[in-house]
């Protein structure tokens, strides 16, 4: 669900950059404070897993395809700040090397998927833990994927009314929210379910191995 370059207006990505930069500074400080010899290789492995998950295209009903996000697992194991930082690195590499997403869209993608995705996952997991670990992880990850998809759908859907040519035609993304919201939410309902199941499997393994670094 990465937004590529050229689809969103400067009126959107410049304010997003102004919000994202201080959050990256805070996340960088939190990461520096918690970096340890054991944590660093684990963080590298799980960040690589998130990169792979978010590049693996899955065929979906209707002839389209989509990919998982991967930030929920990072958030459950390392906490939301470090997950945000690591996922921003994933998005940067995807934009520069892989060709998914974009540089101008990086702040928007990082805020919607990295920051909001990580915080929604952790907040929901903590509040639902009394229901049991499995439902808490599954609901938290699925809901986080849907919230990120909704945010990006709204950002895209607002573009026709934010930036227009002199003749009134959209200068950037042409579809309104009536099209973008179902176009993103419907596929991500399936993607989120798959990602939630995979996250639960890996999270249980990580807990048994005592790899969890996030404050409980």
């Amino acid at each position: 669900m990465h937004i590529p370059d050229g689809l969103i207006s400067p009126q959107t990505y410049l304010p997003a950059l102004a919000v994202a930069v201080p959050l990256w500074v805070v996340a960088g400080r939190k990461l520096q404070a918690r970096l340890g010899d054991e944590m660093l290789p684990r963080l590298a492995v799980f960040t690589a897993l998130a990169l792979l998950l978010s590049t693996l295209m899955l065929p979906l009903p209707g002839g389209t395809s989509g990919h998982a996000v991967g930030v929920g697992l990072l958030a459950l194991i390392f906490g939301p700040w470090i997950a945000f930082m690591a996922y921003s690195l994933v998005l940067l590499l995807q934009a520069v090397v892989v060709g998914a997403g974009g540089i101008t869209a990086l702040p928007v993608n990082a805020l919607a998927m990295g920051f909001v995705g990580a915080w929604v996952t952790v907040a929901l997991y903590r509040s639902l833990r009394r229901l049991g670990e499995a439902p808490a992880v599954v609901i938290a990850v699925w809901f986080a994927v849907m919230v990120s998809a909704l945010l990006l759908a709204l950002v895209l859907g607002l573009q026709p009314s934010i930036a227009q040519s002199p003749d009134g035609s959209p200068r950037f993304f042409p579809f309104g929210p009536a099209i973008t919201v179902p176009a993103l939410l419907l596929p991500h309902a399936f993607i989120g379910a798959g990602e939630a199941a995979l996250t639960l499997l890996v999270f249980r393994h990580a807990r048994k191995r005592r790899w969890l670094e996030a404050p409980r």
Partner: peptide, 10 residues
Amino acid sequence: LFTADGHGAI
């Protein structure tokens, strides 16, 4: 090129 789900290319 645009797709409704937010993909695109220039």
